[in-house]
Design a protein around this nucleic acid. Structure first.
Length: 232
DNA sequence: TCATTAAGTATGC
DNA sequence: GCATACTTAATGA
């Protein structure tokens, strides 16, 4: 079916312990799809019929509150599993996943989940490790939202993106997918205006450089300080 | 300290 | 030239 090379999976944590032949099996059971920027891979509440591995691009995970506003819970980088509802014992997706830029993902029918867990050494432990880490991150973010000022939350959000999905450039760390002021306000529970003002101020101080949908963190250390200490 | 309103400029198909 | 992204100032909770 898919003519994806085995080497693409061999170094990813959930597949690290597997033989080449096993990886071939897994790939033969998968289907590949490309998603244009802004396209939803699946939506919150939808029956979880497949689980996914991101091969290229970035996925934005969006949760919608009953009152209608949506918040960006996290970003997924290439090489990570997502839409793994079966891992947390759900049969619907807990959030919406959209392509933050042009993206390519593998997917498998959920009925294979238990086969993977049973047959492939390390798959279960690695995926549950991922789930645990994500849960912990979410808890930290909830705490942040409740306790920290906007400036600190924005600094943390920028650092999270730079650390998890940044690429090094000459003058700093560039966030590797397109991101708008509105997107960032959806991560930090503020408005795009406040984000715009803070980014402008930080740009004047030389901490970040930003153009439309594009941000480079030039002085991560200064952001670190901003994210922890409360000014005045 | 921050959201809201409002009114503007810049950018890219 | 229109939609989208971004900036800035004013006002008030």
């Amino acid at each position: 079916m898919s003519k994806i090379d085995e080497s693409l999976l061999t170094n990813l944590p959930p597949f690290r312990h597997l033989e080449r032949a096993q990886i071939r099996e897994i790939l033969d059971l998968s289907s590949v799809r490309r998603y244009d920027e802004g396209t939803a891979v699946f939506t919150e509440g939808m029956e979880a019929d497949r689980f996914y591995l991101l091969l290229d691009g970035y996925i934005r995970v969006i949760r919608t509150s009953p009152s209608g506003e949506h918040i960006i819970a996290m970003h997924i980088a290439a090489g990570q599993l997502f839409g793994i509802a079966p891992a947390i014992g759900r049969d619907t997706y807990p959030a919406t996943a959209t392509a933050a830029m042009e993206t390519i993902a593998l997917s498998w029918p959920v009925r294979l989940w238990h086969d993977f867990v049973a047959n492939y050494e390390g798959f279960a432990s690695e995926t549950y490790k991922i789930v645990g880490q994500r849960m912990q991150n979410l808890h930290e973010q909830v705490l942040e939202l409740a306790t920290q000022a906007v400036e600190q939350r924005l600094a943390s959000a920028l650092l999270r993106m730079a650390n998890q999905s940044g690429r090094k450039v000459e003058n700093g760390i560039e966030i590797a997918f397109p991101v708008t002021r509105q997107n960032i306000s959806d991560m930090t529970g503020t408005t795009l205006h406040t984000v715009s003002r803070l980014l402008s101020a930080w740009q004047k101080q030389g901490i970040v450089e930003s153009t439309r949908r594009h941000i480079v963190v030039t002085r991560p250390h200064d952001l670190m300080l901003l994210s922890t200490s409360s000014a005045q």
